[in-house]
Design a protein around this nucleic acid. Structure first.
Lengths: 187, 187
DNA sequence: GCAGTACGTTTCGAATTTGAACAACCGGTG
DNA sequence: CACCGGTTGTTCAAATTCGAAACGTACTGC
């Protein structure tokens, strides 16, 4: 079949730009985090999510959701964090199978110390390079792209209502306004 | 120092969207490629670059440039490709130190066979989800982001002229219009 | 020519990532 | 109570990744 719809020049540029930006930004951020705080990016994300959870603890499964890696990887990451004393494991009281990952004091401190440098790196690599309207477009467009590839997600009630417009991309960044969430709270 | 400039809501959404899109798109494309053609994405990129080069051969170093991975990784990837007979190594006639990676006939066939599915995956995951103006914005903005983080690049003469505006992002996508470059040439 | 430095590529060891297989456990059914 | 499908978290081996060190070779000045 000759019917393949190839990419035109603009689409090609978008794909290439996406690929390169992806690779370089990720590397930049990861490196800063490693050098400055001894954390990998996945590990940092785990800390952020724990810090944003009530009591600083979360079940492995809940932690895995929205954390873009496999289950076994999460086990590994939490294991590493535990080895460094930033996280502790506790069995879940209501479900013997469940394990709660708990943020330790040291973990909270580490996150607090790491956050400013991380935000600076994110700004330097991405945010401060974008014009305000570009920022909005990227948030909207890439939010849609990500949401569309999200695993089917067991229907938590009427999940049909909100389609692909916006709305969904927001449940993502919310909930972390304390230590490492990098939200607005400067002066 | 209290002076950390945190991210406001829109910037946060952009960063989160970027992260999620990055992760999911990359996984989607990689999986399609692996299942459909038995190639990893880096390997596919190597093939594309070789196919776009005169004679289907390129020096390792030239191959490494713009291929967003470390040198040692490139050695590994080419090694894998060679093991499968898609690429052959040949020592460079003008510089004994240099090694040329040469695309074999089988490699060319494999690429030709893999390209349509790959383009389809890229479309499904990213391109077809974007409005035309979003596509342009992303190409421009992310192109700038990527270019800015590009390693200093040894000054190839007057490399000062073109700053960070546009211009640079274009030398990236060009040069691959044959087999797997997915450029416009349908009917 | 000959030291000294820069370049091109690979090798090495360690860290990370993944998918598949596993063991224990929930909830509901008969 | 024993069974069954689905969940939860871990373990295992294999593949991939990286950075640093190792090598052999090219250029440079003397």
């Amino acid at each position: 079949m000759e019917g393949t719809r190839w990419l035109d020049e603009r689409q090609m540029a978008a794909w290439q730009g996406f690929l390169e930006a992806t690779s370089r930004v990720s590397r930049h951020v990861e490196q800063q985090l490693k050098e400055d705080a001894g954390l990998s990016h996945p590990q940092y994300e785990v800390l952020v999510r724990l810090a944003g959870a009530p009591g600083g603890e979360l079940r492995m499964t809940d932690l895995a959701e929205g954390l873009f890696s496999s289950k076994s990887n999460l086990t590994y990451q939490v294991g590493q964090l535990e080895k460094h004393g930033l996280v502790r494991r506790r069995s879940c009281p209501t479900d013997v199978r469940g394990i709660l990952a708990v943020l330790t004091e040291e973990g909270r401190d580490t996150l607090r110390a790491a956050a400013p440098g991380h935000v600076a790196a994110v700004r330097a690599a991405l945010i401060d390079v974008l014009e305000p309207d570009e920022t909005d477009t990227i948030a909207r467009a890439l939010g849609r792209v990500g949401a569309r590839l999200r695993p089917p997600a067991r229907n938590t009630e009427e999940a049909e209502a909100a389609e692909t417009e916006t709305a969904e991309a927001e449940a993502q960044g919310a909930g972390s306004s304390e230590s490492g969430g990098m939200s607005t709270s400067s002066s």
